[in-house]
Nucleic acid binder design. Structure first.
Lengths: 238, 238
DNA sequence: CCAAAAGTGTTAGAGATACACCCATGG
DNA sequence: CCATGGGTGTATCTCTAACACTTTTGG
């Protein structure tokens, strides 16, 4: 039997042992000007007491994205958020008990529109600033690094910043967001010029309130304009 | 019991039924100036007779990338090629027999350096031009489309074109490659200027042979120069 | 009136694009 | 000598980057 026949036999056999399959979610939000990640504290071994990405088993009749959204909603109560796959992580031994392959996702929760109270002991869940994270269980640090890379890469090319920010936002908020997530400073005038150049921000006749200085004008992300721009072959880039 | 406790119970239980997990590979190569894909013809149901991406089950003690490389080597005999994950595909019903989650990969085989004879009936495998593909088994068309998108996206930013081309290549070959894969024409002078501007192509004192016109100069991709450039924070872009 | 952040234009430089002709070789 | 592709330079334009002062508001 050559390697090819071997491969064929395998491809047509369902006798192979099956690993466990889970989904894990890196759920990001913006809070107090910091990029935060939602973690849950494990209470059972392995890694009891350690913090981990929310996740769980995929049901046999459930799509992978559905499973990820279910976990996400169970932890945050929020539906219809942006979610995207990071990839599959399946190193043998990543879970000491048995072979577990996990499909990782990253998601954005808008903490301005949907405050997620995760900081009560009862829930064993908390938001952590991504640059002040505790040690994570399993290979979740690796998964998170991949998710963060995807997040940073994506927000440069897609107008996803608005998923993090209030519906009515100032240009300075937008700039601070990019500076926080990308760890890079932008020139105020150039940033504003560029942000406005795509025509996807509607200037409102409203202003910040309760600030101890000149109130900034508010803008709203115009999703329709963005979809029209995208259909016309346009792109977004910060 | 609230949703959270539910989630915790699930997360700590290993009682869940396990799906089958496979890897599938979109193996690309350049042949006769066309971007080609290696497919195998199924001889068993479901989809008997249909063409499919090479793939197979993941062994319980085997890393996902190792499994993908094993399948790839079994089909092509080639080791140490570029390979990268596309992602996991797991729609229930994508395999009519049982729940199968597949982790898809895309890979490049250099058909100039390693001619892969896949066109014999015995192997039931063949290279197809990606714009003249037969109908594919399972959801492999979806997987392939994702792999193709990844390929096109990646070759603009990483010097992966050289994985497709002969070790000694002409600038016209390089340009044709990009034009073929991206479906876009480039200006000859601008293309050459840009390709040479990164300093990752070594000009050889050798020329094409056996051509019915002026022989073109040969260049070699300088991997060391590219690694040095990358470490210095440099980038590549066509 | 002071502190704090909002808001605003111009210039210089870099990189991208557009473009046409002569050269070398084999048949 | 002809057909085929190889090889080269410049001008324009667009986008990016650098840069400083006035305005508004609350305290």
């Amino acid at each position: 039997m050559d390697a090819h026949e071997n491969s064929l036999r395998r491809a047509y056999s369902y006798e192979y042992p099956h690993p466990a399959v889970t989904v894990d979610c890196a759920i990001f939000g913006l809070d107090e000007g910091k990029l935060k990640l939602l973690l849950i504290q494990r209470d059972l071994e392995p890694f009891a007491g350690a913090w981990a990405l929310p996740g769980g088993f995929v049901k046999l009749d459930e799509d992978l994205e559905t499973a990820a959204r279910r976990e996400l909603e169970e932890e945050t109560g929020v539906k219809r958020v942006f979610i995207d796959q990071v990839g599959a992580f399946g190193e043998p031994g990543r879970d000491p008990r048995e072979r577990v392959i996990t499909v990782a996702w990253w998601a954005i929760v808008n903490l301005f529109e949907h405050p997620v109270k995760a900081d009560t002991d009862a829930r064993n869940a908390a938001w952590f600033a991504v640059d002040e994270l505790p040690a994570l269980a399993f290979d979740h640090r690796t998964i998170l690094d991949a998710a963060l890379a995807r997040l940073r890469d994506t927000i440069r090319r897609e107008p996803l910043a608005f998923e993090f920010l209030p519906r009515k936002l100032t240009l300075t908020q937008l700039q601070r967001f990019y500076e926080t997530v990308l760890g890079e400073a932008f020139d105020k005038r150039n940033f504003r010029k560029k942000a406005l150049s795509y025509g996807i921000l509607t200037e409102l006749e409203e202003y910040e309130v309760d600030v101890a200085h000149r109130a900034a004008r508010l803008y709203r992300f115009d999703k329709t304009a963005w979809e029209k721009l995208r259909k016309a072959g346009g792109s977004f880039s910060i």
